[in-house]
């Protein structure tokens, strides 16, 4: 990835806006915000050449907290907004972000097709296995026996969704897991993701202290994956299928060329198009 211009003098906090987050203190998303700003500072990105698009949910509030261009779209549609932006403005660094409900439930179809389309962007899903903004309902990544939601008494009884496996099967070009409990490690993964061409998916564990207080233990459960990133989808498939959801790091780096239709700079006059209609 090449940037037209960079800002080497900026520090992580220079990428933050003056808007104070509404997240609960202790929420993992603060650390994700921090990791993103650290990654941007490391890459010396010019804030005006970066755009972050999100959907709806706690984590989707992120764009307002950054000093880059942002779009807080409707529920589940961050990826198509980001796709339209990147395809028509390939000069920008584009990120999309949101939660597990936004990305895997209402936005599930877009997730699959964004992986498949492989536009050069980075998608960060902050997974806390719960809908926070609507007061704690089960999401696609919630365990079947989690019974704390009034909406699903006794648990969902439905197996959770495995986002990394689906990302690989759908064609994502980069698959990694990071955790808000290790923001500096997450920053490294994010730099790696943003630098890798094509669609990069970062599964970001980000505990919900309010509705899933037990997730505070994630800090003790996460650990660096004892493997190097593979470029072989078959190896990656086995790795991701046997993964316990707590291995951190870059797990797969594909080599598919990103999807970017050519934007011609020498263009025809509109009257040339009209010739097709003249009898």
């Amino acid at each position: 990835m090449e940037m037209a211009n960079t800002c080497p003098s900026l520090k992580a906090k220079d990428y933050k806006s003056g808007t104070k987050p509404v997240w609960c203190p202790g929420c993992g998303d603060y650390s994700v915000l921090l990791a993103i700003t650290k990654a941007m500072a490391e890459m010396s990105l010019s804030p005006e050449n970066v755009a972050l698009v999100s959907g709806i949910g706690c984590s989707s509030r992120l764009p307002a907290y950054l000093n880059v261009y942002g779009f807080h779209a409707v529920h589940g549609r961050a990826l198509p907004v980001a796709t339209g932006l990147k395809v028509s403005r390939p000069d920008l660094t584009v990120l999309a972000a949101g939660g597990d409900g936004d990305g895997f439930s209402i936005g599930g179809n877009h997730f699959m097709h964004a992986c498949r389309r492989n536009v050069d962007m980075t998608y960060i899903v902050m997974d806390n296995q719960v809908y926070g903004m609507t007061k704690g309902q089960a999401s696609p990544t919630t365990d079947p026996d989690w019974d704390k939601s009034k909406l699903t008494p006794g648990g969902t009884k439905i197996n959770p969704y495995y986002p990394l496996v689906i990302a690989l099967a759908s064609g994502a070009n980069f698959i990694a897991r990071a955790s808000s409990t290790d923001p500096n490690g997450a920053a490294k993964v994010l730099v790696d993701a943003m630098q890798h061409p094509g669609f990069s998916f970062v599964h970001m564990l980000s505990p919900c202290v309010t509705f899933r207080p037990e997730q505070k233990d994630w800090k003790k459960m996460v650990r660096a994956a004892p493997v190097e990133p593979t470029t072989d989808p078959a190896v990656a498939a086995k790795r991701l299928m046997t993964d316990d959801n707590f291995f951190l790091g870059t797990l797969y780096k594909g080599n598919r060329a990103p999807y970017q239709p050519e934007l011609k700079t020498s263009v025809e006059h509109i009257s040339e198009l009209e010739k097709g209609f003249i009898l």
Binding site: A12, P25, G26, Y30, S31, A35, K38, E42, T181, D182, P183, N184, G185, A187, K188, V209, K219
Partner: peptide, 15 residues
């Protein structure tokens, strides 16, 4: 770089 060190106690506290 942030990942070149990990001063966990300070950066990982939460309020």
């Amino acid at each position: 770089s942030p990942w070149d060190y990990n001063w966990d106690d300070a950066i990982n506290t939460s309020a």
